[in-house]
Simulated scan of single mutants.
Amino acid sequence: MQDAWVVLAALAIGAFLGAGFVVILIIARERGEQAQRVVNPVVPEGVDQVIAALDSAGIVLDPSNNVVRASPGALSLGLVRGLAVTNPELLRLAGLVRADGETVQEEIEVPRGPYGDASVTLLVRVARLGTRFVLLLAEDRTEAKRLDAVRRDFIANISHELKTPIASVGLLAEAVDQAADEPERVRRFASRLSEESSRLARITNEVIQLTRLQANDAVAERALLDLDEIVAVAIDQNRVLASGKRIELALRTRSKARVWGDRELLIVAVHNLVANAIAYSPEGGRIGIGTARRDGIVEISVTDQGIGIPEEDLDRVFERFYRVDQARSRHTGGTGLGLAIVKHTAEEHGGDVRAWSTLGRGSTFTIRLPEAASAADAADAGAERPRPRRTTA
């Protein structure tokens, strides 16, 4: 009987120890799972796929502000490094959402990369994601903000440019009326009226051209064009203007190249370069115009012997209404839109325009366009052409 009690006691002790061991295992497993959740937090279902598909920046933060998910856009903008958010403004917005639970939207500026003075304008929206996480979505508004500034400047500039000739026309009309009995004065005022009318027409025409170039279908219909013919027409359009200043227009070379594009737009672009060279060249000078072919690229260069352009202004001469010398530009009758039209025309045709200059010695402007592979393109003239790259400025 005593032996039976010993056996029962042993079994009870074994069961107690076994149960204790099981409890220890359960506690250890729960702690391990808790640690795993801290190391690898589980975000709500579907968020991973959304974050991965975002073009804009998306970041998910845990309660300790550790980054648990980040989209490629967030990484490319430099908003995340390792497991941390790099900008304190984003953490500030996350803190506001945690404090009151309300969604926050704010526009902020953050540095572009760890070095340099450039910045990125972000429209940031922050909201709760479940009970533990915070979701930050950031849209890069830098280009949109720049375009808004360009539009505002354009409206201000065009208003200013139109104000002077419109006011002049009104004053000259009044002067003609008052001088009705003096034929000589009437003729002089009428001549001035004609000049101001022409100036208004130029501004209006160039604004229309620039607006067309910035439309999505600026060069909807493309034809295979003889580049030498385009250059010859543009030169002929400027011969009277050049002869008035005794300037020689010298066609240096012919490329026999062909390009795909809009004939009228390309003639206007080359015309503007030649007219600009005439305007800023001294009387009796010489302007060289030439074309060349280099590795599938066609170049149209216009070189003058004029006053030249300061180096700091070279990057800005293609901006709308930008003038290196305001007083001289008004004297030459320029609108400040000619080179902007050249730039947009070149870009619409898949090319670009470049400028070189030396003060006191002259300038060279070069339009670069992709050359049409003559044999293949001539046989396939009706095929759809690839759309050129577009920029805004």
Rank of each mutant, 00 (worst) to 15 (best):
S119F: 13
V324A: 05
I341C: 00
V259Q: 04
R151E: 13
G18C: 12
Q214G: 06
R389V: 15
L77N: 00
I309K: 00
L227E: 12
A53I: 00
A220Y: 09
L96S: 11
A19P: 02
V126Y: 06
T253A: 15
Q2T: 11
S194H: 08
N238R: 13
R185L: 15
R293I: 15
L359V: 03
G308W: 15
D377M: 05
P44V: 02
V67S: 08
E221R: 06
Q326V: 00
L135K: 02
R254P: 03
Y322W: 04
S374Y: 02
V176Y: 01
L225H: 09
E161Q: 07
G130T: 04
R258E: 11
L91F: 09
S281R: 03
L91E: 10
G261K: 00
I208D: 03
I51N: 03
I158Q: 03
G261Y: 00
A250H: 14
M1K: 15
G306T: 03
R361V: 14
E139H: 08
A269K: 06
R128G: 05
S159E: 04
I309F: 05
V342D: 01
W356F: 05
R132E: 13
I297E: 06
R286C: 02
A378R: 10
P88C: 09
E106M: 13
R316P: 04
A99T: 03
E319Y: 09
A234T: 04
A383F: 01
I26G: 02
A269C: 06
L251M: 15
G32W: 15
A381F: 07
R254H: 12
L136G: 08
I51H: 00
W260T: 14
E109Q: 05
P88Q: 12
A84C: 11
V80K: 01
D3N: 11
L93C: 12
D217K: 06
S255R: 05
K245I: 10
T121C: 08
W260G: 07
P370K: 14
G101E: 01
I155G: 10
L337G: 08
R239C: 02
N87Q: 13
A167C: 02
A127L: 04
E45A: 13
A70Y: 03
E283K: 09
